[in-house]
Structure formats: structure tokens, C-alpha cells
């Protein structure tokens, strides 16, 4: 309860939460607000905003930009959250093993993590999606494969810090199995920085997704913001609105999540507040 109260007094965190709630409501209401398929050509192509009944204009094929943005919200949020959950799972598993066992296991796992941080993640994601085929699942796989290293490093550091603490040793002495010690004593104490980093990972996942679909590697059946900007790129001289509005949608959503994450960081980890990310 204290945490909730502290968070409610965090101005930028609350702004982030407010924007995010609006985005969530729009995502939920998408089928009500724009019941027709966002791929449907519903009017004159190249209609500027507020003409022909288009709030945000129409695109090169006469599709409604506003409908595309609202439906794209669902795609971006789904991919952002799902790929982050997968990345957290991989990262925590690897970080926990490295931090708990230490020694050679730690050495090996950290080498692997370091390698993944050396490889340009975005190019790896492109390669993965291009090889496995552009589908929602493969995009999620690709994003989680390139997003887990910071989470693994963080979890490892937390486990190293907690492993030697007295309450953990006491639990081990009482005959709890390593799994019980990890799940009941170490992980609960390491969870709040993981939550914070995880929330920021959602934001970067949404950015990676938008860049992938900008490059033409999104799921061809899912209307997404990056795809809209990518498709409008070549006509930017004639039709600014086609690329400006979807970009603002990305900007606002990612900004909201980052603000929320920073708010969570300041309230959940008051000691290392404002220590920056990664």
C-alpha cells in the first residue's frame, strides 16, 4: 500500500500511467471505435486529415490512418508485453544460475551474455525474422532473443548480492533445497529491480518491433505502426500525415512506459533511485 501511495505522488510516473491507460483503453475499444478491417480501403487515397471524414487522413490506398493506429496499438502492446515476458524468463533463468552457482557456470554464462551484447541486436533480430518467416510469433521470438542480456546481468548481480546474506544461509542450513531457497528467499528480494528493468524492456521491445515492421519484416496480417510509417516513407513530400501520426503513437506509448518505469524505479528501489538504466 505504501508503494502505491508513494507512486501516486510521483508526478512523471503518474503522467506515464495516465497516457498508458488511454492507450490501453483505445486498444481494448479498437473493434468498437473502428469496427471495419484497418486494411480495408474505405475512401479516397491521399485525403489530408479532417477531410472526407478521415480524422487523421487516409493513406496511399485510401485506408483510414486513424483506424490503422488504433488497431496497431493492439499489435504493439501484445508484442511488447509477450516478448518482454519471454526475455524476463530467459534473463532471470540465466542470471539466477550464474549468480547462484558462481564459478565456471557463471564464467560461461556471462561469456554468452557478453557475446549477445556484442552482436548488433537489431541485425540479429532482422536475420531471425527473415529466416524463420515474418509472423507474430517469430517477431516475438526475435525480440526476446535480443532483449534478455541486461535482465540476465541484473539478476546475476542481485543473486550475487543476496547469496551470502544471513537469511539465505539460514534457510539453506534449515535444510531447504536450493530451489526452495531461490524461489522463497532470493527471488522475492530481487524482484523489484527486475520489474523495473522489465517495464523498460517493454518500451524497447515496442521500438524494435516498430523498426522491424518499418523494414518490412512485420506480420503481414497485422496492421502495425512501424509498417504504416515504412509504407508512407516514399510519399513524405506529398503526404506528411501518413508518417507523422503513427510515429507520434509510438513516441507517446514508449514515453509513457519509460515514465512509468522510472516512477516504479523511484518508488520500488528508493535507495538507487535515478541511477539510470542498463
Amino acid at each position: 500500500m505504501d508503494t502505491i501511495r508513494a507512486f501516486s505522488r510521483h508526478p512523471s510516473g503518474m503522467i506515464g500511467l495516465a497516457i498508458l491507460l488511454v492507450v490501453l483503453v483505445l486498444a481494448v475499444l479498437a473493434p468498437v471505435l473502428y469496427p471495419e478491417d484497418p486494411w480495408e480501403m474505405v475512401g479516397r487515397p491521399f485525403a489530408p486529415p479532417l477531410t472526407d471524414g478521415f480524422l487523421l487522413g487516409s493513406d496511399t490506398l485510401g485506408r483510414d490512418v486513424a483506424a490503422g493506429i488504433i488497431h496497431g496499438t493492439r499489435v504493439s502492446l501484445t508484442i511488447g508485453v509477450t516478448s518482454t515476458l519471454a526475455a524476463v524468463l530467459i534473463g532471470v533463468l540465466i542470471g539466477a544460475m550464474a549468480g547462484y552457482w558462481g564459478g565456471r557456470v557463471d564464467d560461461f554464462l556471462m561469456r554468452v551474455t557478453e557475446l549477445f551484447q556484442t552482436i548488433p541486436g537489431f541485425i540479429l533480430a532482422i536475420l531471425l525474422v527473415a529466416t524463420l518467416g515474418p509472423s507474430l510469433v517469430n517477431v516475438i521470438v526475435a525480440i526476446s532473443v535480443v532483449s534478455w542480456p541486461p535482465l540476465a546481468r541484473l539478476t546475476r548481480a542481485e543473486f550475487l548480492r543476496l547469496r551470502g546474506r544471513e537469511f539465505v544461509q539460514a534457510a539453506a542450513c534449515q535444510g531447504e533445497t536450493p530451489l526452495q531457497v531461490v524461489l522463497r528467499h532470493i527471488l522475492p528480494n530481487a524482484i523489484s529491480p527486475i520489474i523495473v528493468t522489465g517495464s523498460l524492456t517493454i518500451a524497447s521491445a515496442i521500438l524494435i518491433e516498430s523498426a522491424l515492421s518499418f523494414m518490412g519484416l512485420g506480420d503481414p496480417n497485422a496492421m502495425s505502426w512501424g509498417f504504416m510509417v515504412g509504407a508512407a516513407r516514399t510519399v513524405i513530400r506529398q503526404a506528411w500525415w501518413m508518417s507523422v501520426f503513427p510515429g507520434i503513437a509510438i513516441l507517446l506509448t514508449v514515453l509513457a512506459i519509460n515514465l512509468l518505469g522510472e516512477g516504479l524505479n523511484d518508488t520500488l528501489n528508493p535507495r538507487n533511485a535515478r541511477s539510470g538504466r542498463h
Binding site: 521500438l207 510509417v229 510515429g247 509510438i250 513516441l251 514508449v254 514515453l255
Partner: peptide, 16 residues
């Protein structure tokens, strides 16, 4: 703001 901006969109806005 820059942290939340997709780099391709920033580029396009600069072109604009």
C-alpha cells in the same frame, strides 16, 4: 523524448 522516438521516425521528421 529522444529515448522514446524510433530512430527511423526521427530521420523522417528531419527530412520533413
Amino acid at each position: 523524448i529522444l529515448y522514446a522516438m524510433p530512430v527511423f521516425w526521427l530521420g523522417l521528421m528531419m527530412v520533413l
